[in-house]
Deep mutational scan, measured.
Amino acid sequence: MEVRTIKVFTTVDNINLHTQVVDMSMTYGQQFGPTYLDGADVTKIKPHNSHEGKTFYVLPNDDTLRVEAFEYYHTTDPSFLGRYMSALNHTKKWKYPQVNGLTSIKWADNNCYLATALLTLQQIELKFNPPALQDAYYRARAGEAANFCALILAYCNKTVGELGDVRETMSYLFQHANLDSCKRVLNVVCKTCGQQQTTLKGVEAVMYMGTLSYEQFKKGVQIPCTCGKQATKYLVQQESPFVMMSAPPAQYELKHGTFTCASEYTGNYQCGHYKHITSKETLYCIDGALLTKSSEYKGPITDVFYKENSYTTTIK
């Protein structure tokens, strides 16, 4: 009895394709271990004539594949690729409408935090270190965002349907971005203890939790000093293409032309909904596939993004 075979390709990165001759009487799992086709788990399936010449994702289970996976995804987590594939199996079914010149995501599976993050990423200057993220990001900007969303979920250790947080998501993504040249110098002034300067680099240099107003941050924000008295913390120097200011959701007025974009969060910790506000020729609110415009805006804002380049204080 002759062994019926077909020729397929296996890959971990969709760049390096490895030619395989597979036995049609055995499952993919018996031949390769966990195997995925377009995100779908085909591990328990036997090869079919229609699979001839198709590319299958496999887990990096030998040295060659491990090197290829690390170079593309910059992670050695053995569960990463499987999590990416199972997320992709959902995100490829989502709709990605162009809204006001940006790629958004039609609401499904509690994905409003991903839509808000995706919209924000198209408006701030950011370059990702893992080629996987950078490639998928370019495709997302062009309207094909399924891979990018699935990668975000995998890097953030999230599953489809789980509630997510924009600030946490951005923080994970910033860790995989090139923020080497970003720098922030802060000064804390206390009447009792004097003053202390701190220099922050990388992710810490672009994120701040405690106030939404970048102007206020430049002037000074009140913080408790270690001595128990009130101290003032203010920005001395900022070198970065953008800054992200966050605070627990509270009524906040966004003035046209003073910011790049913002995240609105309605609801409580267990259950809520994100919308995205962007400042173009007027203010726009993007909620999944829905767009509304207004000249002014007041609502429960939790993150505001500002364009920056270089700032030095005039406070002496």
Rank of each mutant, 00 (worst) to 15 (best):
G161D: 00
D62G: 07
V3D: 12
G228M: 07
F174S: 02
S86Q: 14
F128S: 04
W107P: 03
P300V: 11
K218S: 03
C285S: 07
S181D: 14
T314K: 15
G272S: 02
K293N: 11
S104M: 11
K191L: 10
D287V: 11
V243S: 03
V42S: 08
S171W: 15
E168V: 15
Y138A: 14
Y84C: 13
K255H: 07
Y72P: 03
L200A: 15
Y269T: 15
K93S: 12
M245T: 00
T91L: 03
Q98I: 15
Q123S: 05
V160W: 01
G267Q: 15
Y234K: 10
I124Q: 07
T11S: 09
M244H: 05
G29N: 05
Y311H: 09
D287M: 12
C225H: 07
Y214M: 10
L235C: 01
D109Y: 03
G272M: 07
E162W: 02
S279K: 03
I45V: 12
Y297W: 04
K219Q: 13
K54A: 14
Y138C: 14
I315V: 15
K92T: 08
Q196I: 09
Y234F: 05
C227L: 03
P300R: 10
K229L: 12
D41S: 11
V3A: 12
I15M: 12
K298D: 07
T55V: 11
K233H: 08
I45D: 14
F128T: 02
Y252W: 07
R83K: 10
V243C: 00
Y113M: 09
S104C: 08
T292P: 01
Y155D: 09
S213C: 07
T302P: 00
Y274T: 11
P249C: 04
C149M: 13
L114V: 10
V243N: 05
M244V: 11
L102D: 04
H51W: 04
Q251D: 13
C156T: 07
A40V: 12
I15C: 10
T76Y: 11
L186M: 13
M207S: 04
Q238M: 02
G220M: 01
K255R: 12
P249H: 09
S279R: 02
Y269M: 15
N49R: 11
T5N: 14
H90C: 14
Q98H: 08
C149V: 13
G53E: 13
L254V: 08
T314P: 05
V22C: 14
G82R: 14
K106R: 15
R184G: 14
V67K: 10
D287E: 04
V188P: 01
N157L: 00
Q197M: 12
Y265E: 01
Y214P: 01
G194I: 07
C190D: 00
Y137L: 11
K201Q: 10
H18D: 10
T35I: 10
C190T: 05
M26Y: 10
Q98P: 12
K255G: 09
T76V: 11
Q30E: 11
S295D: 10
A40H: 13
A140K: 05
H276V: 06
P78E: 12
S240Q: 02
I6W: 04
L173W: 02
T282M: 09
S263M: 05
F80C: 06
A231Q: 08
C190V: 02
L173Y: 07
Q237M: 13
T199E: 15
L119P: 03
E204L: 00
E125S: 07
Q270I: 15
T198C: 08
N187Y: 03
Q123A: 05
A69T: 10
Q175F: 03
K7G: 10
Y284K: 01
N14I: 11
N49F: 09
T10V: 14
Y57G: 06
A177Y: 02
T64M: 15
T19G: 14
G267R: 15
V206F: 01
N157T: 01
A205W: 00
G53D: 13
Q123F: 02
S263E: 04
G272I: 00
S246T: 04
T91E: 04
L81M: 12
C271Y: 15
I6M: 13
A115G: 00
T278F: 11
T260G: 00
L17Q: 13
G33L: 04
N147G: 10
T226F: 06
F305Y: 08
C190M: 00
H90Y: 11
R139L: 11
C112S: 07
D38F: 09
K298R: 11
T198I: 15
S213W: 06
G194S: 02
T11R: 04
Q134N: 05
E125L: 04
I152S: 04
T314H: 15
A289V: 10
C112M: 05
P241N: 07
M245F: 14
P78H: 12
L133C: 00
D165T: 02
K229I: 08
A132C: 04
F148I: 04
T76W: 10
L114M: 10
S104Y: 06
F217L: 15
L133F: 00
L153R: 08
T76M: 14
L65K: 11
M245I: 07
I105G: 06
P78K: 08
N129F: 02
Y208R: 07
T258K: 06
E308H: 02
M244P: 00
E215D: 13
N187K: 14
I301H: 01
E52Q: 12
N61S: 12
N129A: 08
L102S: 08
Q238N: 02
A117H: 03
K127L: 07
E2A: 12
S104E: 08
R83C: 03
I315Q: 15
T302C: 08
E52R: 11
H48E: 14
G39I: 06
G53R: 09
K127Y: 11
T169V: 15
Q31T: 14
A262F: 01
F56K: 04
H18P: 11
Y269S: 15
N110L: 00
T35Y: 00
T55W: 07
E52V: 13
V12Q: 11
N178I: 06
Q122Y: 08
Y36Q: 07
Y274I: 04
M26L: 11
T314G: 15
Y72I: 07
P224E: 13
T116L: 06
L37V: 11
K316A: 15
F259L: 04
Q216M: 07
V185D: 01
T211A: 00
R184I: 00
Q175M: 08
F259R: 00
G164C: 05
Y28V: 05
K46R: 12
T10F: 10
C225D: 00
L153G: 08
P78T: 07
G210F: 05
